[in-house]
Amino acid sequence: MGVTDDGLLAGMAAGDAQAASAFVRRHQARVFGLALTIVGVPAVAEEVAQEAFVRAWRFAGAYDPRRGAVTTWLLAIARNAAIDAVRLGRDRPYDPDVLIDMISQVNDGQTDDYPEQLADAHRIRAALTQLPHDQRVAVVLAAIYGLTAREIAEREQIPIGTAKTRIRLGLARLRSQLEVRDE
């Protein structure tokens, strides 16, 4: 595996071009894939993915390994950058069923250089599929697409209180299931 993610991130923050290049190559498929999932347009997704790496470089000093893996930290940055971009075209229709189907599929066709991350994805996907459909949709729309509770309520044509409840119950169940599996 070579240099750890933390090491590459530190090297990138220090201005080491080789470390930066290695860090980008290691994570570019995940970051670009997430950006494309959210914004839906390859050209915009590339801009978002670039911005995510630049933000990671800029805020590398704020990364704390005690709070989570570099991958999830970086993906959270990418999600925020993608949400910023998609806010300009919020009228784009979302199809949660397609999204849910997509992320519920077994990741057969994909390779991952990091087996532990692939195992994490399988574990999370399995936990997500245990949620009731409504809660699954609400959690995914909020956590991945960055929709607010009000936007989810409008999209699903439900009261905002119901949207909030679905997010709350869904995320709590997901956390419980992941905790059980971690034990």
Binding site: L34, G68, T72, M102, A121, I144, L178
Partner: peptide
């Protein structure tokens, strides 16, 4: 942490 872990489910895609 749970919410952020969901981001790992996004399909990987090779950039240009």
């Amino acid at each position: 942490r749970t919410a952020d872990e969901l981001l790992l489910l996004a399909p990987q895609q090779r950039p240009p």
